[in-house]
Design a protein around this nucleic acid. Structure first.
Length: 215
DNA sequence: GCGACAG
DNA sequence: ATCTTGTCGC
């Protein structure tokens, strides 16, 4: 049986909203308050548990943490992740004591088939500056980046550069960094590196991962 | 038709 | 993402 979900309609919404993405720096630099968000799916996926972590920049001192749960509305479909995770993530973000100036998202930004991954969706929906931090590739092609922290190569789709494949720490699998909203790709890469002192993931998303219940 | 496919 | 123990490597 075919999916009950009208992916064609969702594609149109993505293409429409993608026109509102701002891929240039339009935020205070350096920012003072950054956040990381992520979602987990307990109960065999019936519940969506979103976490938001607020930290100061550049010191990365913890300022606030929020966990928010609500019933899962949609299944996971490659290319439509944001429609599944965004509702709960918005709920978590709204409950932070202070709104962040920049949000690191677990997943792609413009490095998406219709240039509208979850980081873009969150940015356009809230108006916040956002950066996509993917742990693996959704689309695009690239060479293998060098082995040291900071080594990076372009992620390209056709003739378009849609992101960067970045070695956030030496000798770890690279991250897929892309513009979410109101941040340039160059600034996104610098901010990711500045928030990644110890582990593979930027500290805000790593902590959001933990809070949501990952391991 | 076949392979790819964020979390 | 989630289901799951031990195990290989620094």
């Amino acid at each position: 049986m075919t999916s009950r979900i009208d992916t064609q309609a969702l594609k149109e919404r993505q293409r429409q909203l993608a026109r509102q993405v701002i891929d240039q720096d339009d935020l205070r630099l350096p920012p003072q308050l950054v956040a990381g968000v992520d979602a987990a799916f307990p109960d065999g996926g019936r519940t969506t548990r979103a976490a938001a972590v607020l930290m100061r920049f550049p010191g990365l001192e913890l300022m606030d943490e929020v966990v928010h749960e609500q019933p899962t509305e949609l299944p996971y479909i490659p290319g439509f992740l944001s429609f599944r995770e965004l509702p709960a993530i918005l709920g978590a973000l709204e409950r932070l004591s202070v709104p962040p100036e920049l949000v690191f998202c677990d997943g792609q930004g413009r490095a998406h088939p219709r240039r509208f991954g979850i980081a873009c969706h969150l940015g356009v929906t809230t108006g916040l500056a956002t950066i996509g931090v993917g742990k693996s590739r959704l689309c695009g092609r690239h060479e293998e980046p060098g082995p040291e922290k900071g080594d990076a190569v372009a992620l390209s789709d056709d003739d378009e550069v849609i992101g960067r494949v970045l070695r956030s720490r030496s000798r770890v699998r690279p991250l897929y960094i892309s513009v979410g909203h109101r941040v340039s790709l160059e600034t996104a890469v610098e901010l990711v590196l500045a928030c990644t002192p110890t582990y593979r993931l930027p500290e805000p998303v790593r902590r959001a991962d933990r809070l949501a219940g990952h391991r």
